[in-house]
Design a protein around this nucleic acid. Structure first.
Lengths: 235, 235
DNA sequence: GAGTGGTCTAGACCACGAG
DNA sequence: TCGTGGTCTAGACCACTCA
């Protein structure tokens, strides 16, 4: 192939990566300060910071302004199961914030409703312990709004027996500033963005969800049975 | 919410982004040299380069060593359809490279075959004009190897009528160095990585595919019919 | 206030591409 | 050879955290 250019930053990043992998640097441990590391590797602080940026983009370290650089603990991977079957994981806490709003722009198109049509938004953040794991914005036409009590069902998506079709669009991108801060990830760490649209038998959109999952600890799995799914002519 | 820190690099990136969006900088056009841009914005070249790095991560520009920075033309988005139904796009050229190899490590586990079991690899790169669009590594047990002639069917995946189940795992990550160069994208541009495993009625793995799609121009779409898919108890 | 990371500068030197 | 981007340096100054 073409490359193999061992720039200083990569050499340093490789070394630190190994130290993390072998456990010489433990989870949640603070790295030496940047000037210290720079002195140790005999490079300028600028170069050292470039090395750290590489690790940050891989999700290996977390930089905290004024405190230091920390080894990110390897959390359990999340698996998002497509097709409307969302696996409930008892180890995750979910915080839900409900808001009423009116359809406009993207949302209006996504839910195929008229402008200013009343919607209910569920903003869900799942945590494992202290670490945020995933972010979901779920939108439902207000008249279908499941009268969900937080104590009865922590996952509004389960409460949709009317959906007969779920269409999910998956993309990879870098997080917005807001997503990066709520998920506590680097803005250079790729995320999986899933747009899920559920329709009922009449073709009406029953629910639209925008999910954002950190790429370093999330997969999405989809299973299909091609022979039994010859009937695929819809948009 | 928290942020709104207009650092110089972001201000400059915003300005250039606008110039690209409004067409003042046209597709494939070369930007002024970095020293020129730095002078224009009255910043150091280091800062200017940080601004360009932001645009690069968004897929807006392409840096070519020794030549300059170029506005990346907005290509048509690719849509990968899940579930084994791969839409054939006549506007794309496909280059296929066939190799025989032996199963080991990841591949062995993915195809659920014994070690050193003979496999055939299809390395496919699709292009739209000069621009590489997607990268696929397809693995098939050698005895199932479709005796594909390049002139008869450019897409070996179509030639699998035996698959009864397709399981696709989707992740978001940054590309490897090799993927970045073949796809001609920045190593900071997120990619969609799809692992597709097809099995036949007996449960044997008929084909495994590793797809890599540039995140800025690819989506993957999955459609499910929850009510008709109650039978979901397999691994 | 002491210590941390975040941003920026001015300039040296190297590597690539094209004539 | 010349102009381009790529890497690195040494150091200034700012912003955040915590005692």
């Amino acid at each position: 192939m073409t490359h193999a250019v061992p720039s200083l930053r990569h050499t340093i990043a490789d070394d630190l990566r190994t130290q993390i992998a072998t456990g010489r640097l433990k989870a949640d441990e603070r790295l030496p300060s940047e000037p210290q590391l720079a002195a140790h590797y005999k490079v300028s602080t600028a170069t050292l910071r470039l090395a750290l940026a590489l690790l940050q983009a891989e999700g290996l370290i977390e930089k905290i302004h004024g405190k230091g650089n920390f080894v990110r603990p390897p959390l359990r991977r999340i698996t998002y199961a497509g097709g409307g079957r969302t696996p409930f994981d008892p180890a995750l806490q979910v915080s839900i914030c409900t808001t009423n709003l009116r359809a406009r722009g993207h949302l209006r198109a996504l839910l195929r409703v008229s402008s200013n049509s009343p919607l209910t938004e569920f903003l869900c953040v799942t945590h494992e312990g202290k670490s945020p794991h995933s972010l979901a914005r779920i939108y439902v036409p207000r008249d279908l709004a499941p009268t969900i009590q937080l104590n009865s069902s922590p996952r509004p998506r389960e409460a949709e027996p009317t959906a007969t079709k779920v269409r999910e669009t998956v993309t990879a991108r870098l997080p917005t500033q807001e997503e990066a801060t709520t998920l506590r990830i680097s803005s250079t760490l790729a995320v999986l963005a899933i747009t899920s649209v559920a329709t009922d038998a009449t073709g009406r959109v029953v629910e639209a969800a925008l999910l954002v999952l950190p790429g370093d600890r999330a997969d999405a799995v989809f299973t299909a049975h091609p022979t039994t799914e010859e009937r695929e002519t819809e948009g």
